[in-house]
Design a protein around this nucleic acid. Sequence first.
DNA 1: AGGGCCCGGTTTCGTTATGCAACCCGTTGT
DNA 2: ACAACGGGTTGCATAACGAAACCGGGCCCT
Lengths: 145, 145
Amino acid sequence: MEGAVCPVARSLDVIGDWWSLLIVRDAQYGLRRFGEFQKSLGVAKNILAQRLKHLVDHGILETQPASDGSAWQEYVLTEKGRSLFPILVALGQWGQAHCFEAGEPRTRVLDKAHGQPVKPLEVRAADGRVLTVQDVRLERPATQG
Amino acid sequence: MEGAVCPVARSLDVIGDWWSLLIVRDAQYGLRRFGEFQKSLGVAKNILAQRLKHLVDHGILETQPASDGSAWQEYVLTEKGRSLFPILVALGQWGQAHCFEAGEPRTRVLDKAHGQPVKPLEVRAADGRVLTVQDVRLERPATQG
DNA sequence: AGGGCCCGGTTTCGTTATGCAACCCGTTGT
DNA sequence: ACAACGGGTTGCATAACGAAACCGGGCCCT
């Protein structure tokens, strides 16, 4: 799917597996070390190593020499990685709205300043109108798969 | 991961594989029939059947008796499925910004009314301020994995 | 400076998911 | 009635995934 003309397909090629986005989510919230990710996610170490390498290869994470003085390396988000934030928020809002029973405990993303949940994302036109899927169309470059 | 407290993880449990979101994307743009999905995605038929069943089981698609008079069924999005729209837009915008060379052809999502691309998504606080990942914090219910 | 213990992986191997192709059956068109 | 098509299911080969063992190099304590 490397040559797909659809940006959604290209994104999924990079972050479309189960663990990658969860790693990015944890990285957004400050995790940096191999062991931290492993403990937080409960993923097998070989898989984690593989995914971290994948994310580094695609420029979403980069390795840094240290930070606490130890000789090991850390994984930190690049600008490309930080710009995945809206995707994580979108997934979180959808999951919260549709994948929980009422009253079931869940984590929430809160505005640090006032402790309020963030607003539901809205797709807007250039002039600010809120758009649904019926209000948009797809422009294809040539032939599309 | 069924019992995860993180809404992102729950979402990925439902739509976190390679094909599901692409099926939903095509459904958003009007595809309904098994054969249409298969032709558009190029996916093996057994995998497609499995994914469609999964999406139906999770209430994202539902089967309808007909529409062109033929005896077969169609797959159409439910409200839950339609509400995945912002996720697809977020993925599309990110992919477009970070996974293409300049000038490389790509599909685009355009506002039907004016033919303009949609605005980049913004995460906003309840009071309307645009938020980055540094401006938010995570509230955990009890213990989190 | 020697011995044990973490951190950060890699290797091995069994299990599961994925993909291709062949097959099947009811529908539809002629 | 017969051929072709739409909509799957079944079997088998292959690739991804996952658990656990292993391993080397830093670190830590004495």
